[in-house]
Each structure stands twice: as C-alpha cells, then as structure tokens.
C-alpha cells in the first residue's frame, strides 16, 4: 500500500519528468544548433590549419600563439602582432564607448517615456519598438546614406558654408561608433524603460521630502532602483557590439576591421580555421568577463553607515 506521502512524492517526480520531456525539443535544438558547436570551435582552435581551409587533425598551439603574436618568416622569433592588437583594442573600445553612449542617451529617453501619461506612453513605446524590430542591415544602410560624403549631413554642411569639402565620416571608427550607437539604442532603452515603468514615484517624492535635490534623487534613488534595467540594457548592447559584423562591413569599409571581420577573414582568404576558432573563443572570453563583471556589480550591495 502506498502511503499518501509516497503518492505525493511520485506525483512530484512524474511532474518533473513531464517537464523535462516538454523542454526536450527546445533544449535539443539549442544544443545541436547553438551551444554544442561552440565546443567544436574550442577543439578546432588547437588543431593545425589545412591547406585549403578546414583543419588537419593534429594538435598545435600555434593558433593561440598567433592571436597576439607574429612569427618571423626567417628566424621564427615571436613578436607582438600589432595588427591583431589594434583590432582587439578597437573592438573593445568601440563596444565600451557604444555601451556608454547608448546608456547616456537611452537612460534619459527611457525616463522621458516612463514619465509620460499612461495614454501617450504606449505611443512612445511603439515608436521605440519599430526601430527595435526593423532589420539591422537596413538601419545601418540608412546611416550610411546619411553620413557618406554625398549624404544629407555633408550636403547641408556645404550648403550652409560651414565646410567647403565634405567631412570624411564614412570608413572611420567614428562611423562605426555612430552606426552601432544608432542601431543598438533601442536595445538599451527598452529594458531601462521596463524597469522605469515599474518605478514607484512615491519613492521619488520621499526623496525630495527628505531634502534630496534633483541630482541626488536621480543618483541615490532613481538610478539604484532601475539598475537591473541598466545592467540588462548594457549587456544587450555590449554583446552584439563586441561581435559586430554588419556595422564595420558597411560603415568601416573593410579598412577599419573589428574582431568579427578578422575572424571572417580566417575562414575566407586567410584559410586559417584554427586561428579563426581561437579568435572566436577570445571574443567569448571577453563577453564572459564582461558578464561576470556586470553580474558581480549587480549583486554588490551598497553599505553605508549603519
């Protein structure tokens, strides 16, 4: 005879089993077509490049060495690979600056949206949602048309007599930065807005009541309370920015490579799949370090007097 306790336990176990079964298809697809192959990349990064792409099944640390180093053709001595380091530095710099720029613009925008009346709030949300789900390539292309030498900005500048020749923006780091900030801004605004919408403005009133001025209310009350949104937004912007592919291709014009272009090169003309794999893992490491830093920052609690 099963006791009531046993019956309850069995019911719980069968519920958990059913839940595993239900989630199996999603987990399987993601394992096969997203997560699993990442492990193969790790393996490939330790193999020898094949003559026509792909790899030879022979262990070699060479790919990892060449992430930051160059081997001299004649005497085999190692020196720092300036080109790679420049690209790493540019990618990290551009991703960080993009994150900061979108935060500086997105935070006030989200605040503005959240402080509208309930009726108009939906309209603002709709206006930010449209670019959010509009094709990234199209939006990058739109930026291209604005900033190129024959674009509207330069045309207006020349017509106004401010400059005599067009200002070269396209194919510079600035172009990539402007493009990334433009395409990723909605990714920053939406999560901050989601946090801001839930913000209890009575806490803001309490802050003012307790002698905090506008800036102090912003820094000590509003910002800490919407921090989860700020962190989510920063992650959502930083991850695609560090691996950005379309923006540097379209706006950087091949000269100003970012990590993704360098990786692509190894699988194309470079024919060095192990190096491409090692660089990909390196990008993953940067992302993970950034994620860890954010998570730790999010978990840290401010402790002041008392």
């Amino acid at each position: 005879m099963a006791t009531a306790e046993q019956v309850a336990k069995e019911a719980e176990q069968s519920d958990v089993r059913a839940r595993w079964l239900l989630s199996a298809p999603a987990l399987l697809i993601i394992l096969v077509a997203a997560t699993g192959p990442l492990l193969i990349v790790l393996v490939y990064s330790f193999l020898t490049p094949g003559p026509y792409g792909d790899v030879k099944w022979q262990f070699s640390p060479e790919a990892w060495v060449s992430v930051f180093m160059e081997r001299d053709i004649f005497d085999d001595t190692l020196s720092l690979a300036a080109a790679h380091i420049t690209i790493f530095w540019r990618s990290i710099k551009l991703a960080v600056v993009t994150t900061i720029a979108t935060l500086a613009l997105g935070f006030p925008t989200a605040y503005f949206m959240a402080t509208r009346s309930e009726k108009t709030r939906d309209i603002w949300l709709f206006l930010i949602t449209i670019p959010f789900w509009t094709n990234l390539l199209i939006r990058t292309f739109a930026v291209l048309q604005i900033i190129r030498n024959e674009g509207i900005i330069n045309t207006l500048l020349i017509k106004a007599g401010i400059v005599s020749a067009p200002v070269q923006i396209l194919f510079t780091d600035t172009a990539i930065l402007v493009g990334m900030a433009y395409v990723y801004l909605p990714l920053m605004v939406l999560p901050i807005y989601a946090s801001m919408e839930k913000l209890d403005f009575r806490l803001v009133e309490a802050g003012y009541d307790l002698y905090a001025n506008r800036f102090q209310v912003l820094r000590r009350i509003i910002f800490p309370l919407v921090k989860p949104g700020v962190i989510a937004g920063s992650i959502l912007v930083f991850i695609p920015a560090i691996g950005a592919y379309v923006t540097p291709v379209v706006l950087g014009g091949g000269k100003n490579m970012m990590l993704s272009n360098l990786i692509e090169l190894q699988f194309g003309q470079g024919r060095n799949w192990p190096l491409g794999s090692a660089l990909s893992i390196a990008v993953m490491i940067i992302v993970m370090v950034a994620l860890l830093a954010y998570v730790r920052n999010a978990g840290r609690t401010e402790v002041r007097h008392g």
């Binding site: 077509a33 997203a34 699993g36 192959p37 990442l38 193969i40 990349v41 490939y44 991850i239 695609p240 560090i242 691996g243 592919y245 990590l259 993704s260 990786i263 692509e264 699988f267 799949w273 491409g276 794999s277 990909s280 990008v283 993953m284 992302v287 994620l291």
Partner: peptide, 14 residues
C-alpha cells in the same frame, strides 16, 4: 549571450 559571429563560426565548422 553569445555574439552572432561566434555562433556563426561554430555552425560553419560543425
């Protein structure tokens, strides 16, 4: 959580 470029490379290889 994974940049598209990394997933792209992984799937290319696999």
């Amino acid at each position: 959580m994974v940049p598209e470029i990394v997933t792209g490379v992984a799937l290319l290889i696999f």
